[in-house]
Amino acid sequence: MFTTEPNSYIDLLQKFPPRPIKSEAEFFAVQEIIDTLLDAGELTPEKQDYVNVLGILVHEYEEKHVSIPDLSGVELLRALIDEFSLKQKDLVPIFKTESIVSAILNGQRKFTVEHIEKLADFFNISPSAFFRRTL
């Protein structure tokens, strides 16, 4: 998107002025700008500020238009396995055996506190993510 390297915050604003995102096409355009800047290497303070502004706009759009499923427990574990392209054997350090992984994924066993703590560390998420939320 940027044909020449913008040198200042004002240059960045002039090349792609931030505006509230109103469509999926605009959302993807903003994402492309963010990706281009992040992939270019080290961010200057000006570029970091600009990316932060664009990130706020992306966040606002996602809050209104993107539904994130409320997953917990085994559903969450399945989604994480899928997202990270893991195999059951990749989780043996957490569950000790593949048969335990299989039993948990099939609903034949429940998580232990130790499993949840290790999963949270492994995926770098809060242990609370594995508990179903009640309203």
Rank of each mutant, 00 (worst) to 15 (best):
Q48I: 08
T112Y: 12
A79K: 10
K15A: 11
S102T: 13
E83M: 06
D70L: 11
T36M: 10
F28W: 12
R109P: 01
E114H: 09
G73C: 06
Q88S: 04
V74N: 01
K22L: 15
T44H: 04
E62V: 06
T3Q: 12
L71P: 00
K96D: 12
F2W: 11
Q14A: 07
E42I: 10
F84C: 02
R133Q: 14
D11M: 02
I94F: 03
P20E: 13
D90H: 10
E62Y: 07
Q48T: 14
T97F: 06
I104C: 00
Y50V: 13
L54Y: 09
K47G: 04
F123S: 02
D11E: 05
Y50N: 03
L12T: 06
T4K: 08
I56M: 08
F84N: 10
E114C: 02
P20M: 06
V92L: 02
A40R: 13
V74C: 01
I56W: 02
A40V: 09
M1Q: 04
P18K: 05
D121G: 01
D90W: 08
V51T: 15
F16R: 03
E62K: 05
K89R: 15
V101Y: 05
L13C: 12
I34Y: 05
F122W: 11
E117N: 10
Q48K: 15
F123L: 08
R132Q: 14
D35L: 12
G73D: 09
F95N: 00
T134D: 10
L86D: 09
R19T: 10
K87P: 00
N124E: 14
L105V: 14
A29G: 03
F130S: 00
E32V: 02
P127M: 05
F122L: 03
V51P: 01
G73N: 07
V58L: 10
I21V: 14
L57Y: 07
N7Y: 04
P18G: 05
F16D: 01
P6C: 03
Q31F: 08
L91T: 05
I116H: 01
S67R: 13
F131P: 00
G73S: 09
D49I: 11
L12C: 04
T97D: 04
A25F: 13
E62L: 03
A120P: 01
V58M: 02
Y61V: 04
G73I: 11
D11L: 02
E24Y: 15
E46Q: 13
R109K: 15
P127Y: 10
K89H: 11
V53W: 06
S102Q: 13
F131H: 08
L105E: 14
D121A: 09
L105H: 13
Y61D: 05
A29S: 12
